[in-house]
Computed example of a mutant assay.
Amino acid sequence: MLKPHLPGAVKYIVTGVLLLASTVNYGFDPDVSELKMLGWGNKCLTQCFDADATGKLKKWELTLNANAFIRLRRTYQNGKLEYFSFQLQRLDDMDYLGTVNAGTIKLRTTDADIIVQTYNDRKGGDVDSMASVLSIPVKNMEPEKLDSLRNVLLYFKNRNM
């Protein structure tokens, strides 16, 4: 019985085509892990956000989106609205102050890269400014969860856009 002999380059091409065909057949999506990280990051932020730590909130929203933006919006009972937003590529570091039960995640940027908008503030009116720290009050933040969140944020920070 004769074995077919293929030159080295052809073997690699044939193998690559067969692997590509098998991934299409099995529904492999290279972005699945990124979508899972995005979903897990949002779930972690939502479950751990401590809405009671900043006063009486009417509603709030904290999200990480696919374009690597972190957005926090807080609407207070008195109508005051605070909005924070920044692109994770500007993230310098993340710190945690507190215990497992309650604490604050501090997302820091090198420069004042965090957009801060305040509306309906009786004391200061409507103000647009920039900051270098976004403080996020959290609860039930296990060390493993904090490390995983940090890894997700660093992934999106370093991802090529």
Results as ranks from 00 to 15, higher is better:
T110N: 10
K59W: 13
A102L: 03
T110E: 14
S85R: 07
I105Y: 03
N65H: 09
M94L: 11
L57S: 04
L57R: 00
L88R: 02
Y76A: 00
K58T: 07
C48M: 05
N101R: 09
N101L: 10
D52V: 03
R74P: 07
A68P: 12
N78R: 03
L72Q: 14
L57I: 03
T104R: 03
T54D: 14
T75L: 06
C44I: 15
K58M: 05
N78M: 04
L81C: 01
D52W: 03
G55C: 04
R108C: 11
Y76F: 15
N67I: 03
G103A: 03
T110A: 09
T46W: 12
A51K: 11
L107V: 06
Q89P: 12
F49Q: 07
R73H: 02
R71D: 15
D52I: 01
R74V: 02
Y96M: 00
L72Y: 12
E82L: 09
L81K: 09
S85I: 06
D92N: 12
N78L: 02
D50T: 05
T109P: 14
T46Y: 11
N67R: 13
L62H: 11
N42S: 02
L91C: 00
T63P: 03
F69D: 15
A53V: 01
Y76S: 05
K58P: 04
T99K: 00
N78C: 06
A68C: 10
L97V: 14
T54P: 15
D93A: 10
A68G: 12
F86Q: 05
K58F: 11
Q87P: 09
K56D: 14
D52K: 11
R108D: 13
Y83D: 08
A66N: 09
K80E: 12
L91W: 01
T46Q: 09
G98L: 00
C48L: 08
T63S: 07
G55I: 05
D52P: 04
A68Y: 08
Y76L: 06
A53W: 07
Q77C: 00
L64M: 07
F49N: 04
C48T: 15
R90M: 08
L57Y: 02
Q47M: 10
Q87L: 13
Q47Y: 13
L91P: 01
F69E: 15
R108Y: 12
K106T: 02
R74I: 02
A51H: 13
K56N: 13
F84K: 00
F84Q: 05
I105Q: 02
A53K: 07
A51V: 10
G79Q: 02
G103D: 06
D92I: 00
G55D: 12
T109I: 06
T63D: 11
T46G: 03
N65V: 08
L72T: 06
R90D: 15
Q47V: 10
N42F: 10
V100N: 12
D52E: 15
R90Q: 14
F69C: 06
L97I: 14
N42T: 05
N67Y: 14
Q87R: 11
K80A: 04
K80Y: 08
T110V: 12
A102Q: 11
M94K: 04
D92R: 08
G79I: 08
R90I: 00
F49G: 03
D93L: 13
L107S: 02
T109A: 07
Y76I: 04
G41V: 01
L64G: 07
G55Q: 08
F86I: 08
D92G: 02
F69G: 04
N65Q: 03
L72G: 04
G79A: 01
T75M: 03
R74L: 15
A68R: 11
G103H: 02
L62D: 10
V100W: 14
